[in-house]
Design a protein around this nucleic acid. Structure first.
Lengths: 219, 219
DNA sequence: ACCTGAACACCGTTCAAGT
DNA sequence: ACCTGAACACCGTTCAAGT
């Protein structure tokens, strides 16, 4: 039922949500580089300048996407087991970042000063404090975990396996360049199981964090 | 002495190096967002299209910058002490990434398939293998270290302290939003000593890596 | 080999005007 | 309140032409 009483207050064609949705579609179809006021507006059947009524320029548009993505994060209920809870938070974060792979760099890279970005930070801090860290150490450990998380996800989303297969030519070139360790490890460098790699890295980081807390706690 | 014999083969105005240098100046003066074929060319007193003779478009230009920066990395001589050597590599990498802070995202974010990017990878692998890791585990540990390194440096270069000071208003807002752990840790969140934070995070990661190798080695 | 003129198909953004 | 027309000052990139 279109709103036509008195002819004046028509129902708006656009909203922040529809604009973000259209942006995600552009990202999914043509990549993040294809995002522009014009391309997004075209998808909505609207003029580019209309977007300015809902979003603060192109930069604000990208922020809105990152915010909304992160806002959809559902934090797992804490169980009291610190290791398990940190794992669960990390995976929840990963799920959100990979929900729209092309948009992941936005989520991982943009400053998330909004409340959306604070929820997971609070969740991690809560677990660390409960595990026995004092406030100061908890902050350092949080930053370490975040760095590792963001670093792995950035790689996962943007990096190919890094090294082509085991063709002998490449290997010899590596040897010749003095990169013997790379040549030795080449078959493993060519392999990259995203989920397994994430698990390995995050588990190692969490182990380190918990070990440090126990060290401190044991005085 | 300008080259004028026969009038023909004049000495070129441009080179890859001068172009990269000009780009770094633009980045330093106006930020990475200000980099463009036109802005870089202007600095060189040349037409934008001339750059295409030395660099593969704007993207190639950015790659060239990242490559050259990373190429300047001087790897420390290995001492045989794994912990010390990993620390040294990490700091050498940081020095290079922070030499031109505005350009750091390029170094940290771009695919570095060139030989420039492989040298530090080889160095880390060498240390891990010497420390007793087998090739497969060494690759996983390498990826973990890289993720942590890149994550911290990205934050260091792009992120402000994250949380304004201890003004009571902000604190109450956090409490009200249910972010009690953040409220508790707020004074420490407001503090951010870049060098110290880097040291803490990298040391924790290295400790974790070495612990895992020892675990395996001890069967 | 290296640089440029002319030209093309794009950008983001403003502001005043329409409804 | 929301959308658009006209307009501006930009982009990256090509190709043929000059030297």
């Amino acid at each position: 039922m279109t709103d036509t009483r008195r002819g004046r207050p028509r129902t708006p064609l656009l909203s922040r949500e529809t604009i973000v949705a259209a942006t995600l579609q552009v990202i999914g179809d043509e990549g993040v580089a294809a995002v522009g006021m014009r391309s997004v507006a075209r998808l909505l059947g609207v003029d580019a300048k209309s977007l300015y009524n809902h979003v603060d320029g192109k930069d604000g548009l990208l922020d809105a996407v990152a915010e909304q993505l992160l806002g959809g994060l559902v934090l797992p209920a804490p169980t009291g087991d610190a290791r398990h809870d940190l794992h669960a938070i990390a995976h929840a974060f990963r799920d959100r970042a990979l929900a729209h792979p092309g948009a992941a760099p936005l989520v991982l890279t943009r400053q998330l000063s909004s409340l959306e970005g604070l929820a997971p930070v609070d969740a991690v801090l809560t677990v660390l404090l409960a595990a026995g860290a004092d406030a100061e150490e908890a902050v350092h450990l949080l930053r370490m975990l975040l760095a590792t998380l963001i670093g792995t996800l950035l790689r996962e989303v943007s990096a190919a396996p890094t090294f082509g297969g085991d063709d002998g030519e490449r290997l010899e070139a590596l040897q010749g360049a003095g990169l013997t360790a790379i040549a030795t490890a080449a078959p493993h460098l060519a392999e990259f199981d995203r989920a397994a790699e994430f698990e390995y890295t995050v588990d190692l980081a969490i182990t380190a964090v918990l070990a440090r807390i126990d060290l401190r706690t044991a005085r």
